[in-house]
């Protein structure tokens, strides 16, 4: 599976289901962490031109919080959480009593560490569900976090996956906490060499 554009509809549907199961678990972890009810948008598994990815967030110059983790194991990949500015402020105010942050560019060490923990919890929950499904352990690296332009984060994460193809496979999902309108976008990008293993494990070779 060197050429992701040759994925069949059945395989894409199965990958979407992977996103569904992983983000379902991540949503319940977040709901427990926040003590709120969290709804999940229907996940999508899509093969996208890398240059179109920032548009999902509102364009390459959009201010956004990014938390990045490597997926480690037989199936390796990259896990990127992109959290719109308003949601990141709401999350910090919910999680840290007395937090009065207005500009995420000026996060304190406590606030940064809190957001990295959110990333850790979501990635851990997502990958736990996936490990059970694929019957192979998948772990996440320590999270790395920044607040900056969406395009800058995406090019840094996908660059070396695009040597041959202009397209990347991305499983994307978002959470919505209806009352507060919290939005979190989760992107899972399997390494091209891991994709055939993942497809085999979920039984859609």
């Amino acid at each position: 599976m060197d050429d992701i554009t040759s994925l069949t509809k059945i395989q894409l549907d199965a990958l979407r289901e992977v996103g569904n199961i992983g983000s379902g678990n991540a949503a319940s972890a977040l709901a427990q962490f926040l003590n709120r009810k969290i709804d999940m948008a229907v996940p999508s598994a899509a093969i996208l031109e890398f240059k179109d990815i920032p548009d999902i967030l509102g364009g390459p110059g959009t201010r956004v919080m990014g938390i990045f983790l490597k997926v480690l194991g037989e199936i390796s990949g990259r896990f990127l959480l992109l959290i719109p500015e308003d949601t990141s402020i709401k999350l910090l105010k919910t999680l840290i009593p007395g937090c009065e942050i207005e500009d995420p560019l000026k996060m304190s060490e406590l606030e940064s560490s809190c957001m990295r923990e959110v990333g850790n919890i979501l990635a851990g929950a997502f990958l736990n569900a996936l490990s059970a499904l694929a019957q192979t352990p998948m772990l996440n690296s320590l999270p790395s976090m920044t607040f900056d332009m969406a395009g800058a984060m995406i090019d840094s994460v996908v660059a070396d996956m695009t040597a041959v193809s202009d397209k990347v496979l991305m499983i994307e999902t978002s959470f919505i906490e209806s009352e507060e309108d919290l939005r979190i976008h989760i992107f899972l990008l399997p390494e091209p060499k891991s994709l055939s293993i993942l497809l085999q494990k979920i039984g859609v070779v």
Partner: peptide, 16 residues
Amino acid sequence: GSEMFPPTEDYENNIG
């Protein structure tokens, strides 16, 4: 050529 995500102990990215 920036390094957007600060390196962690198990991940380093120097493409920039």
